[in-house]
Amino acid sequence: MRSAFSKALVEAAQNDKRVLLLTGDHGYALFDEFRRSCPDQYINAGIAEQNMVGVAAGLAKAGFRPVVYGLSAFVPVRVLEQIKIDVCYEKLPVIFTGDGAGLVYSTLGTSHQSFEDIACLRAVPHIDILSPCDAHELTACMRSAFAQAGPVYMRMGKADLGAVHEALPDLECGKLLRVLDGDHPVTLVATGSMVKAAQTLGRELGASVWSAPWIKPLDTTQLSSIAAGTRAIITLEEHSVVGGLGGAVLEALAEAGPRPVLRVGIGEQFSLTCGSHAHAMREHRIDLESVRQRIAPFVAKWQAA
């Protein structure tokens, strides 16, 4: 997924000299190819994220297409106010990329773990939120982001889980992508790193699985029609259950035609111990085995209904 990101960036920058990459002194090795191919379009803004976002806003106003790269713990969360006031209020075409989203930095602890980023940005007008699950979705997301006239945030989580899609999907604003077709009365909707787990669970249950690369806006019409064809929905995300994909699905369906929704994600808890990403996922009970156990009663209830 990271090489797809680098490739998409280089492609965009080579095609459009207005594209400028700003990084807050992050992205070691990730930008080697970019720096080699487009040295004049690379700006290391130093360890000063607030200034970096303001500079990106100024560059966008002056006609450039800035891409701001950071860890998702810092971009968007640390710089939320700059994104809101300097960028979104004027609908400036700035692309924010938040790397290492979720529990990726499991060993570094709370400062680098990021499961509030979607929730923070969902309340900010004019910015779209993208959350690709594999290299194909990421490439499609990057193309969509550059095609947007306004601000975009792309969340990049655990990147080495392998492909979900077999080819580059057609991405449409706000649309979910079907990953698996099933006839189980419960449907799974997942985003980012959790789509793989949803795919596995969907196969076990014979359930339909949808990936949500475009979390804001969400296409309520499509979501309603998915809901109409199922008894209940389970959402899965490596993000807080508050304000993320699960929250967005619930809010949309509450108005459009409610279905029972079980939100699988991170709860009211910071990581307490240190360990691998797999360990952190277990600690927060969003690893595959924990999720299997967590959803079992909900699945049984709506299967029997």
Partner: peptide, 17 residues
């Protein structure tokens, strides 16, 4: 504390152009 950074971006954009 917002304006200087945006101004720096504008100045940088102008100098690049």
């Amino acid at each position: 504390g917002h304006g200087l950074s945006v101004g720096v971006g504008l100045a940088l954009g102008a100098s690049r152009r």
